[in-house]
Every structure is written in C-alpha cells, then in structure tokens.
Amino acid sequence: MERILFGDNQFFGVNHMSEEKARAQGMRFQDIKEIIRTIDHAYDAGIRVFMCTTHGRVGEVCDHFRANPHRYPGFEFYPCMPYAHKYANAVTEHGMTGALSKLLPGESKIGALVKGGLSLARMDMENLAGMLIDAEMQMFHDLSTPVIFIQNVVTDLVLGLGAYDAFRMFADHVKAKYDAEPGFITMNLPKLLDALESVGIKNPIICANINKIAFRTSGGLEMYERTIAEREFRPIAMSIFASGAISPDEAVEYVCAQPKIKSLLFGASSRGNIQSTVRLIEKYDAQYHRSQLPSGTAHA
C-alpha cells in the first residue's frame, strides 16, 4: 500500500463535526471540474491513491482518468463499497426486487440472477453478493484497483449480526475476480480483527478511525494502541484530525509515531491544505525513522 491516501468525503458533503461546512463543500464540488482540480493538487503533491466511495459522480472521475492516462502515471483507486444511500434510495423507490433490477449489471438484470444460479427464495447470498460487487466495480474498469474495501456501514452491520462468513465471501470474490486485496472499514477495530481471524483472513487491511483523542472509536484509545502494537494486520488510519478537533501538527505526529500504521488517509479541499499535510507526514516519518522514498513512490 501507498503511505498517503487521498479520500473523498469533502466532495460529497461529509463532515463529522460541521454540517455547515459539509453543505458548503457539497455546493462547491457540484462541479466535477472542482473535484478533478483538487485530485490534481493531490497528485502533484505526490499522492498516488484516491480512496473513494462508489458514489455515482466517482464514475465521472474514472472517465476523466481513463481519458487522460498520460497525466496520471502510477495512479490507483481504492474503491469502497457499497454507497449505502444509493441502495437505500433504490429500495425505497422500487422495492427489493426492483432495486436489484436497477443495480445489477447486464442487459437482462433479473435474468442475470437466474444465470448466476441465484434463487431469491433460496437466498443464495454468495452469488448475489458477487454480482453486487461486480455492479459497483463497473465504473472502475481499465483502472488500477489493487485494494477494494467494504464500507463501515456494512462491515459493522455484519459484525453486529455475527455473520462473519460474509467477510470471507467478499475477500474470496475480490481476489478471484479483480486480483485485488480485500480491505475493511470499521468503527470497531478490535472486534473486526477478531472476526476476520475467525474466518481465516490473516494480516488483513483494516481502515479505522485512529487519532489522538479517540474520536469515533469503539473500545477507547488504549485498546486501539494495544491492538495496533501487538496484533498482525495492516492498519490504515482515517479521521486522523478528528474532523478538525486536533491541530494538524499534533494529529500527524501522533499517527506517525506508531510504526505499525501502514497508511494515512485524509481529505482536503485546497492545494495548501493538501501540501501542508503531505509535508507534515514526511516530516514526522523522517523523525520517527520510517524509510523514505521519493514522493509519489513511497510504499508502506
């Protein structure tokens, strides 16, 4: 994995501290050119991964990257699925079967269920899950997607239900179909790690809130620090700034001081904030003796 990952919350009106700021960002980024311009700033700062939801507008971003491959050598996407609002809206508008018809790929979408050997009455969930993953991945065709994530809304629902085999289904499908590693986003890092190990998923990639004030973490700061230090997995830290509750310098120093954190995920809406965050990560990585490679090529 790359050391620094660029996220997309700011593009779609998501801010966990300020609804006003979220609305303002959502209005600004209604223009796809603004989204592309901001990703360009991240690329020019040396970032080579866009970790993004499967929001419909990300399809427009993918179209741009396919049309301009020479502008973005080495660039990768880390898709995060599902985009829950899309499914909720489809079920509300069309019902369960109608939603499947709208969301599954192919000319005959309900026919695809039959061809895939799925009987809705039998609830053949593995085939259905595979087809839904394929539907989400359509927008990323011909782009590099070495890691594919389950969003926390599904990860944590599966955790609550105890249906851990669903994690194995997802992992097996993305490995076989896309030659990609499975990733898991969660609000409960220790519990998820236990669940993944119970179904034979070793050294998993897990993205979780990791920050100095335990903002939106389940289990508390001490539990997270102990889990990261002692257990075998590849952590990605998100919400490192706790939605602005921690100063950038203090926030980055905290996560960089933990050598087992593999990657840092952040979102920003301006060239200056992107550049300053990259500089802080490079500064504290050097201070804590993380091996350095030229910007844009550093791997964790």
Rank of each mutant, 00 (worst) to 15 (best):
L5Y: 00
D8I: 01
F12I: 11
G13V: 04
V14G: 08
N15I: 02
A22I: 07
A24T: 08
G26E: 10
Q30Y: 07
Q30P: 09
I32P: 10
R37N: 14
H41K: 06
A42G: 03
R48A: 03
C52E: 09
T54D: 14
E60P: 00
V61W: 00
C62S: 05
C62H: 02
D63S: 14
R66G: 11
A67H: 03
P69C: 06
P69A: 06
H70L: 12
H70F: 11
Y72F: 11
F75K: 00
F77Q: 03
P79T: 03
P79V: 02
C80T: 15
A84K: 13
A84G: 04
A88N: 14
H94D: 13
T97R: 14
L103I: 15
P105V: 13
E107R: 15
I110M: 15
L113S: 09
K115P: 01
K115L: 11
G116D: 07
A121N: 13
D124R: 06
E126P: 08
A129T: 09
L132V: 09
L132H: 05
L132C: 15
L132W: 02
Q138L: 15
F140P: 12
F140S: 08
H141Y: 10
T145H: 09
F149Y: 15
V153W: 05
T155Q: 05
A163T: 04
Y164V: 07
D172T: 04
H173F: 00
A176W: 02
K177I: 02
F184W: 01
F184S: 03
I185G: 10
M187G: 14
L189W: 01
P190E: 13
P190T: 12
K191S: 15
L193W: 04
L196V: 10
E197W: 13
E197G: 13
S198I: 14
N211C: 02
N211H: 02
K212D: 06
I213G: 06
F215I: 01
F215E: 01
F215C: 02
R216I: 07
R216T: 08
R216D: 14
G219W: 04
G219Q: 10
G220A: 04
L221E: 10
E222I: 00
E225F: 03
A229E: 15
R231K: 15
S239A: 10
I240A: 00
A245E: 05
S247K: 13
S247T: 11
P248Q: 11
D249E: 15
E250L: 06
V252D: 03
Y254K: 05
V255M: 09
A257W: 02
S263N: 13
S263Y: 09
F266K: 11
F266A: 11
F266P: 15
R271P: 01
G272F: 09
I274M: 09
Q275G: 08
I281V: 12
E282W: 01
K283A: 01
A286N: 13
A286Q: 13
A286W: 01
G296E: 05
A298M: 09
A300K: 06
